[in-house]
Design a protein around this nucleic acid. Structure first.
Lengths: 134, 134
DNA sequence: ACCTGTGTATTAGAAGTATAATACACTAAT
DNA sequence: ATTAGTGTATTATACTTCTAATACACAGGT
């Protein structure tokens, strides 16, 4: 038995953002920044529930949505782990279609703010590098 | 009396996206693509309500939120028009802070999809050019 | 003054969302 | 078979959000 649990999640009950969504976001960030490697198991819903003093179902909701998204994988009797492989059926084109709506938001917002396109590109480039190196 | 009204808005009642939000998004796009020039008046809330078979209050909600955002301007007795000037008090730094959360979404999503950063940059560049030229 | 045109404050009700209590199905190890 | 560990289906409830009905204030033209 290795001492697994450490820090994990931190929720802000005042922020108005639903608890299950905060968990989802934090899992995604932990994975994107490689703090949670592929194949690693996440804390159980009851562990989270105790830590955060919430109901296990709330944690379960976060997990099952992440599973539906293809981020996590459920192993019977053991729990949720970070999915090993990328989704198999996902072509490059499908991936692009998933990200285009968000990019369009960026475009509309930057027009609205009259931000120079080059400035926006520059900012995104910088953010992409940051997150990649952590 | 010029024949003002034409097409304007199109709502999808099945999409789950609230009507007032669909109106907001479409107004922003119409402005970003210069189909609605600065100073132009928008259709009245009752016009929209009749066209879309909704309640005037729903259109009003869209308009007043757009006004609060600084996109539209209210003229007593005449209606809503596209704001002439950019918001005066907005510094570059404030503008950047508004767009960073959206850019972070892009970063997280692209990590999740394992999209190459260059590919993402390329897509955004292309979208920014498209919308700028229309 | 009147009528018709703006947008909206208020109120109400329907619909949806977030959280939780409980009970269940399943796995692994004893 | 039992025990202790996974996640979850179901149900209930509080809460928020969305839409609408009504009535109002103001502007402009007659």
């Amino acid at each position: 038995m290795e001492s697994k649990a450490k820090y994990y999640f931190q929720i802000a009950t005042t922020s108005g953002v639903p608890i299950y969504r905060q968990i989802i976001d934090q899992v995604k960030i932990l994975i994107a920044t490689k703090k949670l490697p592929k194949g690693e198991f996440l804390p159980s819903v009851r562990q989270i529930a105790t830590e955060l003093e919430i109901n296990p179902m709330t944690a379960s909701k976060a997990y099952s949505l992440l599973e539906k998204e293809g981020v996590l994988e459920f192993v019977r009797g053991q729990g949720m782990k970070v999915r090993e492989s990328d989704l198999p059926g996902e072509s490059l084109e499908q991936k692009e279609n998933e990200i285009i709506p968000i990019l369009n938001e960026v475009v509309t917002k930057s027009k609205q703010l009259s931000l120079r396109p080059n400035k926006v590109i520059e900012m995104l480039t910088s953010l992409l590098k940051e997150k990649g190196n952590e």
